[in-house]
């Protein structure tokens, strides 16, 4: 037997032994999911692809700052900075450092957003979708028109090829950039053997240079706020086919007082029940609600006028108001509530 291969098998076996304790955990999660959300293979694949891409962008940028701005001449850092495949992901993948609630939640939202975009493209062409924002460019309030232009420009910079899910550093929320930067910096220091201090400086510079205002999400939120405030918009009811997905989600979030991440999460849940409740709470007319539901639905679910009409608005308002409370409070409330185990526990 080839000695190298022999050593590989030994190393592999040792690694397997270290991880064996988690096999039951992984299998349990797959067997006994605690939510009703179904994660299909495409979502899993997209999430990994997005995560690898985001880590790669952060890694490349740190190396660029270290080598170009701080004058570091380390060969490996130079090659990563110039676009060579990074290796941090492989180091971090099984470390548990990426398995934080914040990061995983972000991955889920981005993946679901990508699902929604794909569903929309089955109903409206990419070109039509991209032209939805142009109607705001002639808005009588120049601030709104400028914000719409800003969003258009930001979107055009980050839109990848159809079906591709790629991370753009400018579009990553600051909290996520922060959550990625330090593990990647530590991974780079370990991989290269280069003293960490200059890499840390490069990481700090990356953080300081990150500008949240140039990201698509914030630009969409600001445009949603301005449109809402202007009160002159003819289409008071947000719609994904009239606004485009990003602005639609931002407008719905703004009108309901929820976050955009919450709205996207609701669309992944069975029958989009919480999305229906949100639409009812903010009094979206029945025909618009049915149309929005149909545009975002990925299966054969149908929302009927009767179901929507019979959804009690006061109770919907109360629920949405509850979901808008701080996450920490909602978590604590859930833990303290007697029906902690939900329907299965009763």
């Amino acid at each position: 037997m080839d000695r190298t291969r022999h050593v590989d098998i030994i190393r592999h076996a040792s690694a397997m032994a270290d991880k064996a304790a988690f096999v039951a955990d992984d299998f349990a999660r797959a067997l006994f999911p605690r939510t009703d959300v179904v994660f299909n293979d495409r979502m899993r694949s997209n999430a990994r692809q997005y995560l690898r891409s985001a880590i790669g962008r952060v890694e490349t940028r740190i190396c660029q700052i270290a080598t170009r701005d701080l004058g570091v001449t380390h060969e490996k850092l130079l090659s990563i900075g110039e676009g060579a495949d990074g290796q941090s992901f492989a180091v971090l993948e099984h470390s548990g450092l990426l398995n934080t609630v914040e990061i995983v939640q972000h991955l889920f939202v981005k993946t679901q957003q990508s699902e929604l975009a794909a569903r929309l493209l089955q109903k409206i062409s990419q070109q039509d979708l991209e032209s939805t924002l142009t109607r705001h460019l002639d808005h009588e309030d120049s601030v709104v028109a400028e914000a719409a232009m800003g969003l258009l420009v930001a979107q055009s910079k980050t839109t990848g090829a159809s079906g591709e899910i790629a991370a753009s550093l400018a579009d990553l929320p600051p909290e996520i950039v922060y959550a990625f930067v330090w593990p990647v910096t530590a991974a780079l220091a370990r991989l290269t053997g280069f003293p960490g201090q200059q890499l840390q400086q490069a990481a700090e510079r990356l953080l300081a240079a990150h500008d949240e205002s140039s990201g698509v999400a914030r630009k969409a939120e600001r445009l949603a706020q301005l449109l809402d405030q202007s009160g002159t918009d003819q289409d008071r009811v947000p719609h994904p086919m009239r606004d485009g997905l990003t602005l639609f989600v931002a407008r719905l979030a703004r009108q309901s007082g929820l976050s955009t991440d919450q709205i996207i999460t609701f669309t992944a849940e069975p029958n989009m029940a919480r999305l229906v409740v949100v639409m009812r709470a903010i009094n979206i007319p029945v025909q618009d609600a049915l149309s929005i539901f149909a545009a975002l639905d990925g299966g054969d679910h149908i929302l009927t006028a009767a179901t929507y009409g019979e959804t009690d608005r006061d109770r919907s308002l109360a629920l949405v108001s509850r979901w808008a409370s701080p996450n920490a409070y909602q978590n604590a409330e859930r833990i303290l509530s007697s029906d902690l185990l939900g329907d299965q526990g009763k």
């Binding site: 600051p174 922060y178 953080l207 300081a208 990150h210 500008d211 949240e212 600001r222 405030q229």
Partner: peptide, 21 residues
């Protein structure tokens, strides 16, 4: 975070509620 942020902010006093970016 050591980062530049860009977000909506609300404030209120006895007379009014203010929405800012």
């Amino acid at each position: 975070l050591g980062m530049n942020l860009s977000r909506p902010v609300q404030a209120s006093d006895d007379d009014c509620r203010i929405e800012m970016w």
